[in-house]
């Protein structure tokens, strides 16, 4: 069978991936494969939005109020130019969604990366050092956890706006979102990494490294970190979905991305005003996009958690 050692050595990285348990469990789950496909399509369309979208929603010159509030193309009053209709400013809904998911995903990815780096670092240090350092970091985490993400975001947004003023709002919005979402998510990484670190720290390979007098920083970086990344990957995936939702929520509440460069959340908020007058498409399509993205990413995260957890197999 395939355990032959000679061939094992020569296996390339790709072959190793194809042979791995993760890949196997991936190919065994139809739902996961569909979720991965959907995620990939959304990421790709967001990435290539400037190329594939039929209109440029930011090009004010091409906008015409004459075209505003058109229903989707298959409707009697629809315009074949605007497949999913247009919003109140005459922007093509499809193009805006593509550009909007670009912003939503960027906020999600950057804030998740920010939260992960912060949380992993603090969790590693807390778990490895223990004692007082651990106590302080984890108490800060507890305090952090008692503030809901939205409250933190509102606080930061309010503070920044007060300091910067309305002028730089457009420029600061992205940073404010990333920082506030990141700050409300790091605790989960810190706690998970800390508890895995507590386990790994007592394993004998870490003791072997301590024995030769390796610096604690190097032990954390070279030995502990690679072995605690499994659960982090799972959290990061699920957090991506959460971050996108939080961004949408904040934008919906008006503290997020401003209407000139709409994210999915901003679009939903705009559309919300027209929902009762019958222009459902402005809010429905961005909402469906958001739901599809979050569902797909969540399914991927769930699968990853099961695949990485040997106890469930």
């Amino acid at each position: 069978m395939s355990m032959n050692k000679e061939t094992d050595e020569k296996m390339s990285v790709i072959a190793r991936v194809l042979d791995s348990d993760i890949w196997y469990s991936f190919t065994r789950s139809k739902v996961t494969m569909v979720a991965a496909l959907v995620t990939f399509l959304i990421f790709a369309s967001a990435l290539f939005a400037p190329i594939i979208s039929p209109h440029d929603p930011f090009d004010l010159a091409s906008l015409s109020l004459m075209d505003s509030l058109l229903p989707p193309a298959w409707n009697a009053e629809g315009d074949p130019n605007y497949l999913l209709g247009t919003d109140d400013q005459g922007r093509d809904v499809l193009s805006t969604i593509l550009y909007g998911s670009r912003i939503s995903l960027a906020v999600g990815l950057v804030s998740v990366a920010f939260a992960a780096v912060l949380g992993i670092t603090l969790g590693l240090v807390a778990g490895y050092m223990g004692g007082r350092v651990d106590a302080i970091i984890m108490r800060v985490a507890d305090v952090q956890l008692s503030f809901p993400a939205i409250l933190i975001a509102l606080l930061i947004d309010g503070t920044v706006n007060a300091l910067v003023g309305g002028m730089d709002r457009e420029r600061s919005a992205f940073t404010v979102l990333v920082i506030s979402i990141g700050l409300s998510f790091w605790v989960q990484y810190a706690r998970t990494v800390r508890s895995s670190t507590l386990v790994e720290r007592n394993k004998e390979y870490v003791q072997a490294a301590r024995l030769i007098g390796l610096h604690p920083f190097l032990i954390m970086l070279r030995h502990v970190l690679p072995n605690v990344m499994g659960p982090v990957l799972v959290i990061a995936t699920i957090n991506l979905a959460l971050a996108v939702i939080t961004e949408a929520t904040l934008s919906f509440l008006g503290v997020g991305i401003p209407g000139t460069q709409p994210s999915l959340g901003t679009m939903i908020r705009t559309g919300n005003d027209f929902l009762f007058s019958g222009e459902w498409w402005i809010t429905f399509f961005p909402g469906a996009m958001l739901a599809a993205l979050v569902l797909a990413v969540n399914l991927l995260g769930d699968w990853l958690r099961d695949a990485l957890n040997p106890k469930l197999r």
Binding site: K203, E204, Y205, Q207, A208, H223, P226, N227
Partner: peptide
Amino acid sequence: FQDPFASLN
């Protein structure tokens, strides 16, 4: 060490 499954990274 005792446990060869834990003593190698």
